[in-house]
Each structure stands twice: as C-alpha cells, then as structure tokens.
Amino acid sequence: MDLETLKQKMDEAHYIYDETLITVLYVALRLNRPLLIEGAAGVGKTEIAKVMAAALDRELVRLQCYEGLDESKSLYEWNYQKQLLSIQVNMGRRDEDELTRSLFSDEYLLERPLLRSIRSPEPVVLLIDEIDKSDEEFEAFLLELLSDMQVSIPEIGTVKATSIPFVVLTSNRARPISDALRRRCAYLYIEYPDMDKELAILRARLPHVDDRLAVQVVSAVQKFRSSEAILKKPSVAETLDWAQALDALGVRELTPEILRGTVGFVLKNNEDIDLIDEILNGECDGAECTGDHEDCGHSHEHHHHHG
C-alpha cells in the first residue's frame, strides 16, 4: 500500500487527517513498527486504531490496560476449573500421561487479546489502550512480545506469530513509558485539533447538525480549551456529544443561558463549570469583541461559510 492508497482508505473511513498523521501511519505500517500515540485525553488516539482497522480491512483486537493487568488477563490463562472437572470425569478412564497432556491443549487455553492477535490467521490491528495505566512489569513483558513477535508458554513452548498485527499503543502520559519500549515504536504525538479541524470533524460526524450551531459549539470548546484555568480540557468526543445533545434539544442558537444549562456535556468538573462566566466574559469584554464570539450573547451580524 502506498501513501496515496492509504489516504484514499482514510477518506473512505470518513476520517479527518492531516499530512503529518498520514505520513506517520504510513511509516509505521511500512516498517512494521508498533505505533505509540501520546497526547491529552480525548484527542482521538484510540480512534486512530479503529480507523486503521477499517482502512486496512482488519479485525480490531483491543486490550484495555489498567493497574494490575498481568499476563493471565492479557495473554492467556488455563481454564483451571475446566481442567479440574476433566480430571474428575476422566479419572481412571484414560491413560494418566495422555490425560495430563490433554489438559494443556488448546481446549483448555483461554486466549486473551495479545495471544489472539498473534495467532490469528489473518493479520489484525492490535490496540493496546492506555499503556501508561499498566504496571512496569507488564511493559517489560510487552517488550518481549513486540520485539520478537513470539511468546513462551511453559506448558506448550514458544508460540510464534502466524501473522504480524499492526500494533497501536496509546498513552495519556500519566507515567513515563520506558525508553526500551519507546525505542521499538514509531511515535506520534497528537494535539487538540484547531478550530478548522474540529469543525471539519464535527461536520463529518454529525452532518445533520446546523452549521451555525456547529461553529458556535466548536468556538466555545476552543475557548474553554485555551483557558489556563480549566483543569479538565474538553475532548473531541465531548464536543460531538454536546453538539448532538443541543441538536436533539432543537437548539439552533447557543445563547449564554443554553450554554450554562448544557455545559455539563463538555466540562466535567464543578470548579471548571463555575469558571465559564469568567472565561466567556473575559473574552468578550471591551473592544476586542469583533463578532467572532458567537456564544457571548452579544448581538452581531454573523456571516458563516456553509461548507
């Protein structure tokens, strides 16, 4: 697949991208490198894996990381209860050695996402989400898997990958990822989208939302994000939720009253919500208000480009 084909596939998946993103994806794909994506929460890191799965027409296998995630939850586990039942049922009926051997066969193996992704006959997209939430031990184990594309299961031996998955790792940078793991990955950092890109995303995802409202919503969200005082910055998903909710409520114009009533869709901290008046008024004071601030409640003539 060349760069142009990848772009075409992304277009087909209705994904809004820029040149940097598409080049990074292409490089990772061509070099068969796992892709480590970092950035603030809600900028669309996970979405990239989903879109890549759609674009490459592959199955998406997802591993959600959390504190305490270990091999048994991520790689494989023996179905101990089933093994025990089998022993009780077959005791005395079968040859003991054969019974022992049969207990460590595929029938009793519970495949978890990592094993599934490398044993799949067709290559898949493996999403290892929020790797920063897992423990360092898990990271070390992952390193082995990603560099050799094989794992050792003591009872069976080494399992080699039948297909090489396209691996996407995401991190919110809650804790630093080890250099060793970074070295094995291609790296992508995503920032919050700017006004134009976010508007394009909103238009692509929610084409039925009134364009004037879309502009107002995005400009309000951009303003919240650019404010230092806001602790939890609204994500793109929250922008979409908000726009959808306003649309469902039949809102055509984002007035300050409506904004206050529905701002819970984008701001999830009480302290942040308390600040909205300050932020909006701060932006709209004095001569600087040129009419670009749709949500400030001032009456201006607005002319928007409806694309």
Partner: peptide
C-alpha cells in the same frame, strides 16, 4: 515536510525528542 515527518517518526520517541 514528508521527509521530516518520516524521519521524526523513526528517530524521535517522545514529545521532548520530537
């Protein structure tokens, strides 16, 4: 730009390195 992005993807492994 493409050359720069491609090389950066290969060489830089963190925001700081980017």
């Amino acid at each position: 730009t493409v050359v720069k992005t491609a090389l950066r993807t290969v060489y830089a492994k963190s925001r700081d390195e980017q």
